[in-house]
């Protein structure tokens, strides 16, 4: 690469979202300026939710469908709509394709959106995706006109099958939901990024800012975070930290990192070095 080639075409200016216009996230017909998606489960109050939404800069946030509590006051929907955030219903808690498809249809009725974060887990202990039920429900929902964003294993073959089924994105896990273990198999995440054309959204396992940066450096298009924010001691601070990490990781990916080397390579030229201690 020549020196001319290495000049940045348009150097992103410092500051929040300065690079966004040149680099939007596109999912189906949606265009988004930020790449951190917020999972809303686990926050102590709607006030803290509002703080976390603002700090995260998220334009998409997930909600779950549950039985209506007649005593509940205020709604997660009020907060998200007030902040102009797209509501992404999930199918959390579903363990069969039938449950997941019905939950997605109920969410479409209730919320007026055909977007769904499709979750079909195999058991309550690991919360790992059930790939068979996941693919079956994805096919049904795509046929029914849904924009399907499936929470999936870090399996490059399954990710490709989900893309072929018509999913609008794939959301591989970094580690089990709520574990905060980071990205256990970065090689697989890189293979998924290489293997599909739809956006790759790293979902589950993020524990702190460096995990989110790593996901973006691996080539993910976005990161969805719930527990790392909602269960942090200070959710809004962590939301801001993760937003900065996602942005930094994205810029680093686009910048083109140096290859890893086993031995050192001097950054200072050796030519012209003085002989100060001749043998």
């Amino acid at each position: 690469m020549t020196e001319t080639d290495r000049r940045s075409p348009t150097l992103p200016a410092p500051g929040p979202s300065a690079d966004a216009d040149a680099d939007p996230l596109r999912i189906a017909d949606g265009v988004f300026q930020t790449r951190l998606l917020l999972g809303t489960g686990g926050l102590p109050s709607l006030t803290v939710l509002d703080e976390a939404v603002v700090a995260s800069g998220a334009e998409i946030a997930t909600v779950a469908m549950r039985r209506i509590d007649p005593t509940a006051r205020g709604s997660v929907l009020d907060v998200l709509r007030h902040r102009g955030v797209r509501v992404l219903p999930n199918t959390a808690g579903c363990q069969t394709a039938r449950e997941a498809v019905l939950t997605a249809r109920l969410a479409r009725e209730a919320l007026g959106t055909a977007w769904v974060k499709l979750e079909v887990v195999g058991d309550d202990r690991t919360l790992l995706p059930d790939p068979v039920e996941l693919l079956a429900s994805a096919e049904q929902l795509v046929a029914d006109g849904f924009v399907v964003l499936p929470y999936t294993s870090d399996d490059p073959v399954l990710a490709r099958r989900l893309e072929q089924a018509g999913c609008a994105a794939v959301m591989p896990l970094g580690a089990p939901i709520g574990s905060g273990l980071g990205i256990r198999n970065p090689h697989n995440i890189a293979l998924i990024v290489e293997g599909v054309r739809v956006p790759v959204i790293l979902d589950a396992g993020i524990g702190t800012a460096s995990d989110a940066a790593r996901a973006m450096e691996l080539g993910c298009d976005a990161v969805l975070v719930a527990s790392a924010i909602t269960r942090a001691a200070h959710p809004a601070w962590m939301a801001l930290a993760l937003a900065e990490a996602v942005r930094g990781g994205r810029l680093a990916r686009r910048a083109g990192r140096i290859p890893r080397r086993f031995h050192a390579r001097a950054s200072t030229a050796g030519e012209g070095l003085a002989e100060l201690d001749p043998a």
Partner: peptide, 8 residues
């Protein structure tokens, strides 16, 4: 009877 709650 279902509605949206925090989740995910």
């Amino acid at each position: 009877l279902l509605g949206a709650v925090q989740g995910g």
